[in-house]
């Protein structure tokens, strides 16, 4: 009787597993066709498991584990559609991918001690870490995608509009300051910034309505930069934090300082 029950249970389990496997294969197929919902369904099945693995691999550091999981999410989002057709065990594939992300983070950490160049950079990294720990992977992905979309839209602006727009909204300069820097009239600066805003608004509305293809899977690879050059602090070319010593040393060879004036004769 017990043996029969075990057999039935085993068969049932096999059936369930088979059903799960076929369901996963179906989801993978959909993912390979670009179905975003299918990705999240698949990811959701292993998210808790992968989160625990991240915690283990990141030495029980919750912040790092959360960061690793977010990165793994993005990487999976990026890579899964390409490999979905050949994957037979999605859990094993995602586990390996997540493990690789954790190992990459450890390597970055070792390099980071030497690599971080400024306090500002550290502050930015801290901010990013905090932001990522506070948000869920899904919202992190959405935020990341939105950020990239905005950056791409700004980068796609023609130079004549991009420069004043960046100076206004990123470097927070006044219209007058921008006009002086770019040798334009203030009215012209205002006009250009307004044009840039209109173009960006149109593009972002399309994105938010899901009408354009500005999405991570097409544009972001794990090596693509998440910031643009103009987001760097204004330094070389814009502001120079080191006054040139050679220029300071430049001087006229005028006759004399007072101590060698002919006054020694006249005074005595």
């Amino acid at each position: 009787m017990q043996a029969n029950l075990n057999k039935v249970h085993s068969i049932a389990l096999q059936e369930v597993n088979k059903s799960i496997a076929s369901e996963e294969q179906a989801l993978l197929k959909l993912v390979s066709q670009g179905d975003r919902t299918a990705f999240w369904q698949l990811w959701g099945r292993y998210q808790d498991y992968l989160s625990r693995r991240c915690l283990t691999w990141m030495g029980c550091n919750h912040t790092d584990a959360s960061e690793a999981l977010s990165r793994a999410t993005l990487k999976a989002w990026d890579k899964l559609p390409d490999y979905a057709g050949t994957i037979t065990n999605p859990r094993a594939w995602l586990t390996r991918l997540t493990h690789n992300v954790c190992m990459d983070m450890h390597r970055e950490g070792n390099r980071g001690a030497r690599g971080i160049e400024s306090i500002e950079e550290m502050a930015i990294k801290d901010d990013e870490t905090v932001a990522l720990t506070l948000a869920s992977p899904e919202s992190a992905v959405l935020r990341q995608e939105l950020g990239m979309t905005i950056r791409r839209a700004i980068n796609a602006l023609p130079l004549r509009l991009r420069a004043p727009f960046i100076l206004r909204y990123y470097h927070e300069l006044s219209y007058q300051d921008i006009a002086q820097q770019l040798a334009l009239s203030t009215a012209n600066v205002r006009k250009r910034i307004q044009q840039a805003r209109e173009i960006l608004q149109k593009n972002l509305n399309k994105y938010l309505a899901g009408l354009n293809d500005l999405s991570l899977e097409k544009h972001q690879s794990h090596t693509s930069p998440t910031t643009s050059a103009w987001e760097a602090p204004m330094t070389v070319g814009h502001t120079v934090d080191q006054i040139n010593y050679r220029i300071t040393a430049l001087c006229l060879n005028l006759p004399h300082t007072w101590y060698s004036s002919p006054s020694l004769l006249a005074w005595s």
């Binding site: 010593y245 050679r246 040393a249 430049l250 001087c251 006229l252 060879n253 005028l254």
Partner: peptide, 9 residues
Amino acid sequence: GVELNAYLI
């Protein structure tokens, strides 16, 4: 036309 001299590096 005035001539001056300058030191430069």
